[in-house]
Nucleic acid binder design. Structure first.
Lengths: 204, 204, 204, 204
DNA sequence: AATGAATGAGGATTCATTCAT
DNA sequence: GATGAATGAATCCTCATTCAT
């Protein structure tokens, strides 16, 4: 009933439906940056603002905060899968890509559901799926009888490296990740996103 | 805690200064439980409510959210120090106590300042001090030429175990912590709080 | 409802001007159902969705919420008029048709402008016209010296029956309407929409 | 409208807990006026503003919109009960008080749950209780073999009078209510709130 | 010293309305 | 003519913080 009292007349450009895909990408990119710099609980409005879209667009694409976070993770997971699917991929290479994202989004794999209660069941389920996809991707290139091959060791190790990159410390995240894999006795290739972009490419 | 919104005329007894220390303890205990069950960003009012005190009391003892979190951690660190100071303490014993707290408060060492911007400088500094105290305690019992003895390896390992206990997973936190130490090739004693209380004592 | 947010390239067929009339009908029918089930303040978008048309179409046909509501009422009133114009129509028959709509849209005659301020003047005027048309239709068949014949009694009685069908109660709307007319000492014919459709025909 | 007489420093005066009861009354009074003038869906913020309190106070006293509406009705019902409990009360007197409130809050008894779906179950239940209380109060003074004594006739009649007072019409609400009772063949005493205040006393 | 009500800024969320395609 | 994405003001609601009692 109560609509804009002032039909201002001037509206920003409406690029039409074509903008949908572009906006979605922009929102995910903005979310990645905002989450990295301000944490997972930054105002959603700041994400919309950074993406250059209205509040409503964010809600149209992502019904809640979890959806946004999941969308960011989804992209990371996709890159890991692509790395694993690449011709002649070795475990070390895939771990390099994974590690890149862990240092970028360490906040996530662990934080997303750091508590039991708060997480929606649906989000938790989605997170498990993503986790399983990462595990499947890694196992594609995991040599037989690898020391992380048994039980949950593989994903526990991933969690460990993630943990090593969090929190306040003297060393950089990258160094700590490297040290962590070394302590686990696992060799890691170059730490970078998949696609050959320069390692510092998408840092906020 | 449904008090009458409309005053009834009675007031709770004022137990005098004695109550202050008791309230502080109650607040920390409440905070530990609330943080564990609802996450670090639970309403401060819920902590006061769980502690059975008014809002004002919380502010009297702790000026902000970080102070509350630090106070909880402080207790954990103290127990680790006590374990390390005990007659004939072995690294494994101290790690057991530390691990107990990691599984209880995994949310902390990592989460507290998972992001750079949000953390007050003072809190960050305080966290570093706590971290250094843990490191010092561990080194007291660290055998010469231990594989974690060099550089930052010791605290990176602690972060790794912390990371292993976070997030959604099939295994229990305790099992994951055990697996993590095993992957690091480090022996750990019984996982329990210092003081001999039963391991399941203070679980919420 | 789950259309692709990201355009697929296909567009629904444009059925040409023929579609306009069909869409209008669909919108009114959808509005009737939505208003009945969700109340008069349901999101307009839900009406468009239920009608299976885009948001824009709704605005093409109805500039605002009131227009939609008026259009629904308009149909009801038309049926009452038709009933009154029918060969050999008796008051009881016309009241039956009217009552049918009151039980279906009790929300309306009363609610539409239950408050003074909110209603646009134009809507209020339109409502008065509709009300007058109902009164005129009823008077066509009103016997001389009928007990409701004087002053505003006739329309007050209509309002009363409408009121009897609103709100939470043990009895069904139909029964309450019947009881209301009985208390008013007025005989009512079969309660059904005009046109001989079965009384339960268009219930949602 | 307690204005901050002393804008000392940064915040408006905090009158302390003593204000609780006063605020609750002010909120109910404000809600009565706002609901009457703007309808049941007026912004809750406008109620808080009119009551001269912050947003939070409204939410402290009433968790949602329904609670506010119920609180207003509650007061009306209480007056009807008091009227019925008065020494030597006659049905006509009680109906007079009831009718006063119907003309004031016609929006309610009917509107509150004009739709099925939207209403919370709890609100619906509460409304039924209020309705039952009104019925019980009326029956206290209902003469044996009164024409409204059977079945649901009594409350249906109340609903009818409520309906007569709603909507756009030439006559005033009071006149319409009087006409409605007359059509029902029921005698009504002076239409006024209970307590002997002048009939125009609390009109907004 | 404690209580818990009040404040009110901020952030979440909805939805009427516009408009490129 | 139709579609449905985008806009953004308005409203809802929470909760950190203050302060009279």
């Amino acid at each position: 009933m109560t609509q804009p009292l002032v039909p201002t007349g001037r509206r920003p450009a409406n690029d039409g439906p074509k903008a949908a895909a572009r906006n979605r990408e922009a929102l995910i990119a903005a979310a990645r940056e905002i989450f990295a710099s301000q944490g997972l609980y930054a105002p959603l409005s700041s994400i919309a603002r950074r993406a250059g879209v209205g509040q409503g667009v964010l809600y149209r694409h992502f019904p809640d905060r979890d959806s946004v976070a999941i969308a960011v993770l989804e992209e990371n997971v996709r890159q890991v899968e692509e790395a694993a699917a690449a011709e002649g991929a070795l475990l070390a290479d895939v771990l390099g890509v994974l590690t890149w994202h862990l240092t970028d989004s360490a906040a996530f794999l662990g934080l997303l559901h750091s508590n039991g209660a708060a997480g929606h069941a649906a989000t938790l389920a989605h997170a498990r799926v993503l986790s399983a996809r990462v595990e499947a991707a890694l196992r594609r290139t995991l040599p037989a009888r690898h020391r992380l091959g048994g039980g949950d060791d593989l994903m526990i190790a991933v969690g460990m490296v993630s943990g090593a990159t969090s929190g306040p410390a003297r060393e950089s995240r990258e160094r700590r990740a490297a040290a962590a894999w070394r302590l686990l006795g696992v060799e890691v290739g170059p730490v970078r996103p998949f696609g050959g972009r320069h390692p510092t490419a998408e840092r906020g």
